[in-house]
């Protein structure tokens, strides 16, 4: 599974906002250009990012395997035509190039996930989006990270309990209803307890934010993202 790994690469030490800017710049230019020449340049840039951030390629490709299946399906669906000549290679090739750039964007984004801890992403959100929405979004993202394993274990418990009672023999709608009903009521129980705990601890609109600052090494990365965004308009 693709997740944050502590490390001391240069990418780990960058400000999360510059890393996000590169993501957006890269995606913008990759979505704007599908010529083979542009894709060669973008592939080279992706390779540099992966090496600098020390992202393991095979592990990352495995993590995105379901997306890759759908990406591979695109060219096949596009190439298939009803009636003679049955296979339209040109249309399939266009879609294949379009699918390839998506793979590149996913690989570059893996570098962000691998090198950015949650508290950095949260600080970036709260400093970028002003006012109350930014506060709630930042805290909310942190809560999702915190409660994801808890609710995953709740869902596993419900699923195992159903299996132990031969719930697997029931119809699909019946099973979905039980899962949804029990999952939602457990979630709301936890939320109500959390809300009480938050209020007991003076949950406020103006907490002290985690420290975050641009440094000199962010300058070339930010410039790169601006260049990438501009190339989207070429």
């Amino acid at each position: 599974m693709l997740t944050y790994e502590p490390g001391d690469t240069i990418v780990h030490r960058l400000d999360p906002r510059s890393k996000l800017a590169v993501q957006i710049g890269f995606a913008a230019t990759a979505l704007a250009h599908t010529t083979p020449r542009a894709l060669v340049a973008l592939s080279a840039l992706t390779a540099v990012v992966l090496v600098v951030a020390r992202v393991p390629l095979l592990e990352t490709l495995y993590a995105y395997r379901f997306a890759l299946v759908i990406l591979a399906l695109g060219p096949i669906v596009a190439a298939a035509t009803l009636g003679s000549p049955w296979i339209d290679l040109d249309s399939g090739l266009t879609t294949a190039l379009a699918s390839y750039r998506v793979l590149l964007i996913l690989l570059v984004s893996a570098a962000y996930v691998r090198t950015t801890p949650v508290r950095h992403s949260r600080a970036a959100i709260q400093r970028t989006i002003p006012g109350k929405p930014g506060q709630l979004l930042g805290i909310g993202v942190a809560l999702v990270f915190r409660f994801l394993p808890v609710l995953q274990s709740d869902m596993r418990t419900i699923r195992d309990a159903m299996a132990a009672r031969l719930g697997t023999e029931r119809g699909a709608v019946d099973r979905l209803t039980t899962l949804g009903l029990l999952g939602l009521s457990r979630t709301f129980d936890r939320a109500d307890r959390l809300s009480l705990a938050l209020q007991a601890r003076c949950f406020s609109w103006n907490p002290t934010l985690p420290p975050l600052s641009f440094s000199r090494r962010d300058a070339p990365v930010l410039s790169l993202s601006i260049v990438l965004v501009l190339t989207a308009f070429l």
Partner: peptide, 22 residues
């Protein structure tokens, strides 16, 4: 987008929102 493995296939990351086929 911040990297929680919450999308289908337990993936995450900004690239999924920016470019995934689904």
């Amino acid at each position: 987008a911040a990297g929680a493995p919450v999308f289908s296939g337990m993936t995450g990351g900004p690239g999924v929102l920016l470019a995934e086929p689904t």
